[in-house]
């Protein structure tokens, strides 16, 4: 009788302790997530690093032109090495990025400072939702593989949907302590009154450390963003 009792007790105790451990783990994770959200948007201490591994997410047409416009005003020695990512179906963007890099390269020796990669998109325009479940899984695994290889410290993006999985993975890396990164999001100049879906997600979930908009109408609606005026510049 007594033996049976103690057996039940010990079983209950072990179940209890497993439950307790799980709750503890969840609480710890939540605390960590909250801490990461709190730390996002806080500037890094002065002189942390001379240069940052930078990931640049390119989109199609207008997006890429805007991104290269932004890159042209950043000091290249501070953002090096640079990794460019574009959708696998987008041939033009990486080509434009290559010619941009060629135009800024001081000498051929430092050419390796930049790399160009393609990423699978989760859903192409017009693709059915059923097949997009599978392609989304492939896209996420591919994004994870690229992020593990690059482990960026700075991410620059301005709106193409491909930046979402990359930024979410970057956030998970922050939570897990794999790599701390600063995410800068510049909403496209084409967005005047409403943010794009990517922009809205990164703003609301506070994944973007610094958020920039190019029209005063948007700044009114999203006060945490910096209003920087139109960035389409000559270079």
């Amino acid at each position: 009788m007594e033996e049976g009792c103690s057996c039940i007790y010990s079983r209950m105790a072990s179940r209890f302790s497993i439950g307790l451990l799980m709750i503890l783990a969840i609480v710890l994770l939540m605390v960590r997530v909250l801490y990461v959200i709190y730390r996002c948007g806080k500037p890094l201490p002065k002189g942390v690093s001379q240069s940052f591994t930078t990931l640049i997410v390119l989109g199609s047409g207008g997006h890429t032109a805007e991104m290269l416009s932004l890159l042209s005003v950043l000091r290249k020695d501070r953002f090096t090495p640079r990794f460019y990512i574009a959708a696998a179906t987008d041939n033009m963007s990486l080509q434009k990025a290559r010619s941009f890099e060629d135009s800024v390269a001081e000498k051929p020796a430092v050419k390796e400072a930049s790399q160009f990669m393609q990423i699978y998109r989760s859903r192409e325009v017009g693709q059915s939702y059923v097949t997009s479940v599978w392609t989304t899984i492939v896209a996420i695994v591919h994004a994870l593989w690229l992020m593990i290889r690059i482990r960026p410290q700075v991410i620059l993006c301005n709106g193409p949907g491909t930046c979402i999985p990359l930024c979410v993975i970057a956030f998970v890396f922050k939570v897990l302590g794999i790599r701390w990164s600063s995410i800068f999001y510049v909403e496209s100049v084409a967005r005047v009154k409403k943010l794009s879906l990517s922009g809205l997600l990164l703003y609301k979930l506070r994944i973007a450390d610094q958020f920039f908009v190019q029209w005063p109408q948007l700044h009114k609606k999203y006060p945490r963003a910096h209003y920087v005026g139109c960035l389409m510049i000559e270079f």
Partner: peptide
């Protein structure tokens, strides 16, 4: 054409670089 230097300054300051 716009001026990109304010964005560059904000990004640089955020990352702890001194102003040039």
């Amino acid at each position: 054409p716009g001026d990109g230097t304010p964005v560059a300054r904000i990004i640089d300051r955020f990352l702890g670089f001194p102003d040039d």
